[in-house]
Simulated assay, not measured.
Amino acid sequence: MKREKLIGLIMLVATLALLGACSNTASSSEGGEDVKTLRLGHIQSESHTWHKGSVKFAELVEEKTNGSVKVEIYPSSTLGSDRDLIEGTQIGSVDFALVAGVMSNFYQPYSILELPYLFDDQEHLESFLYGEAGAELQRDMLEETGIRGLEFFTRAPRELTTNKRVDSIEDLQGIKIRVPNIEASVEGWDAMGANPTPMNFSEVYSSLQTGVIDAQENPASFITSAKIHEVQDYLVKTDHVYGYVQLIMSDLTYEKLTEEEQKAVEEAALEARNYQNELVAEQDKKALQVMEDAGVEIIEVDKEPFREAVLPVHERLADKYGRELYEQIIEMSSLGGN
């Protein structure tokens, strides 16, 4: 009997140790007070605005909680791809993440936001994101996924880079273009005549270098941050998506914080959003200049044929993922709808 009790005690201790090791919210003691150390992951390099916004967020959280909560930042896909980060926030192995369109694979109404030529410009995007419609979208996402949307950070428009000259939509025919694994992006580029190829962003540089793909599309600062301009000859000013990156939080982590800490995190997210957004336009201009200085030719195109080509995709995905949400966005358009 004593042997059985000893074995049982050993197993209990081992189980408790394993549970402690699996907890992602590390605590330490400073001056007799517990400090919660949380992890924030993103896929960008340390030179990018996402990272700078993350650093500001971490500084603000520590300041506003008087040091009771600290945020450690893991850039450059250290904690995994966008999908890995989102899955991590669902199970609580990641506390915060900055993620973009891949969220549509977890909460389908986000698919609407990824439609090419949905938003007219940055003002149209922000009127949606920072209004009641954007807030409602985040509340619904929390209920559906267990992921808490803290803030939307804006991004510069997505542009096309390619090794084959594109002066018009006709020149897109057959170009093999890397796209994120997002339905609206795949179908949109297919409708425009390209050959869309979903691929993790970490594989893009080498795939362009070896000719596996001809082209890719991203905001200018994203392109230079990953040095994609080193293996591309042209940047085409398509402005096809005015997009966002969302600062998300595991609701499991959120519920472990005190009410004061929760409020501090929310305030820090808002201030970090404003800080990051101010950097975006400036960094986008610098990135375009970097590419031009490196010999990348920048091409202006008539966007209207591109926009018209994707309207059938708008209609199909609006019916599939949220006609009401789609119409809300179109009603805000300065173009008076499609």
Results as ranks from 00 to 15, higher is better:
S29I: 12
E30N: 12
E33Y: 13
D34N: 13
E46A: 07
S47Y: 13
H51L: 12
V61W: 01
G67A: 03
Y74P: 04
G80I: 01
D82K: 06
G88K: 08
T89I: 10
F96D: 00
G101V: 07
I112A: 01
E114N: 15
Y117M: 00
F119M: 07
D121W: 04
L125C: 00
E126G: 08
S127F: 08
F128I: 11
D140M: 12
M141Y: 03
E143W: 12
E144C: 04
I147V: 14
L150G: 00
T154I: 14
T162R: 09
R165N: 02
V166D: 00
R178K: 10
W189V: 02
N195F: 15
P198H: 15
N200T: 13
F201V: 15
S202Y: 13
S206P: 09
S206E: 15
S207F: 02
I213K: 00
A215P: 03
F222H: 08
T224R: 05
S225D: 13
A226R: 15
K227V: 07
I228C: 11
L235H: 04
V241P: 05
Y244Q: 08
L247I: 13
S250E: 02
T253V: 09
K256S: 13
L257C: 03
K263W: 03
E271Q: 10
R273I: 11
N277R: 09
L279N: 06
V280D: 00
Q283F: 04
D284K: 06
K285N: 14
A287D: 03
L288D: 04
M291L: 03
E292Y: 12
A309Y: 08
V310K: 02
L317Y: 07
E324I: 11
L325F: 08
L325G: 01
E331R: 12
M332Y: 14
S333K: 06
G337K: 09
G337P: 06
G337R: 11
N338S: 15
N338T: 14
